[in-house]
Amino acid sequence: MGMIEHAGRVLDRLRRGLPLVPRPYAAIADDLGIGEEDVLAVLRHLDEVGAVGRFGVIVDHQTLGYTANAMVVWDVPAEAVDEVGRRITRCGGVSLCYRRTPRPPLWPYALYTMIHGRSRDEVTARVDAIAARCGLEDVDRQLLFTVRRFKQTAACYGRRAAAPTNESRGGE
């Protein structure tokens, strides 16, 4: 099996998290029937080619008191989005900043920022501060606070088990 085949299986196994045992890569390797060094090689390779966003402790912000989270969208003209996105990133105070395809007239927004805070007021104040620091006071923006989290799990990048059918669930 080559690196690509290993990579899909390692990523899939990692969705359940790195085991909390002294040799976790060896434990994953045993599950997959490959070597500990193969698992480490895959992870180093993904990192080297720039595919890794991050690898480490994924904390639950809500449990730790960051209960106010807003997706803030800014109505920046298409030609200015890249420049403003980089400016916001330099200003700091956001946990994510990216451009997405706008869908006017229903959804004209192309620039997205995620802001986590301990309270609604803290998040609102931070958005005001970002607007002031980055010269965006006149840009239309919307704060979409999170009301409820229905689901938050690891993404499915690689292969996965076939979806259960009625038959495999016992014909319910």
Partner: peptide
């Protein structure tokens, strides 16, 4: 166990894998 850690895991950069 207390829910402070979701998992020790890996996130992939958008548009690289999958």
């Amino acid at each position: 166990e207390r829910g402070a850690i979701a998992r020790i895991g890996l996130t992939v950069r958008p548009n690289t894998v999958g």
